[in-house]
Amino acid sequence: MLSMRNYLFSAGLALLVAAASVSITATASPAFASEIKYVVNNVPITTGDIAHRAAFLKLQRKKGSAADEMIDQTLRVAEARRLGIRISDAQVEAAYQRFATTNKMQLKQLDGVMAQSGVGKEHFKEFIRAQMAWNQALSARYRSGEGGSVSEQDAVRRMLDKGGAKPTAMEYMLQQVIFVVPAAERSATLAKRKREADAMRARFNGCNTTREFAKGLIDVTVRDLGRILAPQLPPDWAEQIKATKVGGATATRETDRGVEFIGICSSREVSDDKAAQMVFQSEGSNDKNADELSKKYVEELRKKARIVER
Rank of each mutant, 00 (worst) to 15 (best):
A28S: 15
E254I: 15
I45P: 06
S267M: 12
K121M: 02
G112L: 01
V39Q: 13
R310H: 14
S10A: 15
V298M: 11
V77W: 04
M278E: 14
L2C: 07
T209V: 12
I307T: 11
G216T: 08
K274R: 15
L174R: 03
T168P: 00
Y142K: 04
K121T: 11
G226D: 09
D198Y: 05
M1R: 10
A67F: 06
P235R: 08
S29C: 10
M200Q: 12
V308Y: 10
A214E: 01
E299A: 11
R310T: 13
A78H: 05
D219Q: 13
N208V: 06
E254Q: 12
M132I: 11
A251D: 14
A18F: 10
L83D: 11
S34T: 09
L15D: 07
L59Y: 07
L107C: 00
R5C: 05
K58P: 03
M4D: 03
I71C: 03
I87P: 07
A94Y: 08
D68C: 00
V180F: 01
T244C: 04
Y7V: 05
V119S: 07
R193D: 04
D256I: 01
I45G: 05
S294G: 08
E146S: 12
G148T: 02
G263N: 05
A191G: 06
A140S: 13
R227Q: 14
V43S: 13
E152S: 12
L160K: 15
A31R: 13
V259I: 15
M200T: 06
D256E: 13
V43Q: 14
R82N: 14
T25A: 12
R302Y: 11
K125V: 01
L15Q: 09
V17H: 10
T244G: 03
E309T: 11
I71W: 01
T101Y: 05
E171Q: 15
V246L: 03
A183N: 13
A290T: 05
L229R: 15
R143A: 14
A191Y: 05
Q240T: 01
S34P: 01
S65M: 06
A238Y: 05
Q106P: 00
E171V: 09
F213W: 06
A133F: 04
F124Y: 13
E269L: 07
V43A: 14
A20W: 09
R302W: 06
Q131A: 15
V222H: 08
D154Q: 14
Q176I: 01
A130H: 02
R81T: 15
D224F: 02
T221R: 12
G147R: 06
S267Y: 02
A115Q: 04
L225C: 10
K304E: 13
L57F: 12
S271W: 00
D287C: 04
K166Q: 14
G120N: 03
K303V: 05
E260C: 09
E126L: 05
T168F: 07
D219P: 00
Q60T: 01
K62C: 06
S149P: 00
K108L: 08
R53N: 07
A197L: 07
A238K: 09
K295N: 12
T74S: 13
P234E: 10
H123A: 10
R158N: 10
D89V: 07
L233Q: 03
P231V: 09
A90T: 11
M200A: 06
K37Q: 13
T250F: 09
A305G: 03
G226R: 09
E79Q: 11
V298T: 12
I264V: 15
G148W: 05
G145I: 06
R98F: 02
V279N: 10
I87H: 10
